[in-house]
Structures are given as structure tokens and as C-alpha cells.
Design a protein around this nucleic acid. Structure first.
Lengths: 120, 120
DNA sequence: CGCTTGACCTCGACCAGCTTCAGCCCGTTA
DNA sequence: TAACGGGCTGAAGCTGGTCGAGGTCAAGCG
């Protein structure tokens, strides 16, 4: 699978994928004889994970560290697990933020309704 | 209430509050005879809203526009309402992202548990 | 009176995270 | 065989948002 397909598949842009590989956020992608990147299922899995993690606010430095651990083999699994678990905890916090914001908005919106006399 | 207290109260930094006022993200804060900003309840309310909106990903340009509408009076309430409603919709999308990410993480974590043989 | 504190201002630096650019290579289709 | 689409690279550029430095001023206090 070539980079354009990988991009479509993961929701990342082509540039972003190259950038991620270049900065060590994912394992090196293997190349064909023509020098082009060839993405396999594992690569896509990685990129999808990265996409999800970025989308939900994990900084790239953390993902870099994670990738470095991965390269060091199975001995690092517990630490990797800890990283993901920590991120899960942050997700929970984010959800609380979102909920708070939603409440606030609901409140504001109902005030607006009072003002415009419910003519919506 | 002075700026340092406003900062503590809203979770924004002092610099950020000044920046928000300067760039028209909130109505102008009134000043005392000594030239210092004096924050009242309405100001705090605004800043808290801004804080929530920023935290949940609304760009400052949108908040600027919102503030401009506010300054134009009650005729703009419907449009302001629309902006907040649109943001609420984005919050919903975000929550879906978070959920997706959480599922993915749960899945990854259980794979890790297989590898390390559930010795946690 | 002078010191400290905390506010004020402007303006430029900084940061993450991409994106774009320039110049080149390769394979395919007309 | 020429043109085109898409890939490659390295480096530079951009954007949104925040912080910091440098310098001033007013209030409070011993």
C-alpha cells in the first residue's frame, strides 16, 4: 500500500505521515525497490493509533518516547502500558471538560431563549 | 477584583487575560482611577466562558467574532446562539473521538496483557 | 523617603505541529 | 518519447496561542 492510500486510510495527510516517520513517531516504513514507502497492516495500525492519540491531545514527544520503547522490545511493554493507561486517564479528564462546557453552553443558550422570547 | 484574582478565578494566566482583552475576545474591562483593570462578575463570566471554549478547541478568531456580535446588541442573539450551538455540535464530535480512542486503547491494553501474561 | 509589590505597556521570542517549496526520480499512458 | 501523476528529500515557512523581557508607574509600608 502506498502513502496516498495510507493517508486516506488513516485520516492523516501525506506530509504528516512522512513527518511522523521522519521524527520517529512510528517505526521506519519499509521501502520498495523504487524507494517508495510500502505500508503494511501493522504500519496502518500504528498510524491509526497515532492519529487517535494526537486527535485526543497526546503531544508528539510522548509518542516519540512510546515508539522508542517499542523499538526496544517486549521488555518495555509494562511501561508502554502505563503510558496508554495514563492517556486514558487524560481522556477521562477531557470528557469532564467537555461536559462542563456543554453544561455552560446549554445554560447560555437557555438565557438567549429568554431574551429572544422563544421565537426560534 | 484585580487581574491576579481574575486569573486565579478563571484558570487563565494574567498574560492571557490581557491578550484576550487586547484582541477583542471579550468586552473591554473597566479601569479604576489608577488605570488598573477592575473585573466584575460579568467579566469573570465572560472569561470563564472563553476559557471553556478555548479548552474545548474553539479558535480565538471565532471568539473574536462572537464578542463583536455581543457588542452589537441583542439583535445578534440568534447568530450568537447559532455559534454556540455549532460549538456544541463540535463537542459531540469530540466526544465520539474520545470514545473511539478509549476503545482503541482498551483493545491495545488487553493485547499487552496477553503479552506479559497477566502478571500485573 | 525609599523599598517592595504588583499592575501597566509594547514587542518580540517561542513552541508545536504541521505544510509548502524546490528540485529530482520513476513508471505509466498517449 | 514526451508528458503527467505521484513519489522522494531537506529545509524553510507558517499559524495560533502564550510567555517573557524591559521599562514605567502607583500604592502601601516601615
Amino acid at each position: 500500500m502506498k502513502i496516498s492510500e495510507a493517508a486516506r486510510h488513516t485520516g492523516l495527510s501525506i506530509s504528516t505521515i512522512r513527518y511522523y516517520e521522519q521524527t520517529g513517531l512510528c517505526p521506519t516504513i519499509s521501502r520498495g525497490t523504487d524507494g517508495q514507502r510500502q505500508f503494511n497492516a501493522v504500519d496502518l495500525d500504528w498510524l491509526s493509533l497515532l492519529s487517535s492519540l494526537r486527535e485526543t491531545g497526546m503531544p508528539t514527544a510522548a509518542m516519540q518516547y512510546f515508539a522508542r520503547l517499542y523499538r526496544s522490545g517486549n521488555a518495555t511493554v509494562p511501561e508502554r502500558k502505563a503510558i496508554l493507561t495514563a492517556h486514558q486517564a487524560r481522556l477521562k479528564e477531557r470528557q469532564i471538560q467537555l461536559d462542563r462546557c456543554r453544561d455552560l453552553l446549554t445554560q447560555k443558550l437557555s438565557k438567549y431563549d429568554e431574551i429572544i422570547g422563544d421565537q426560534t
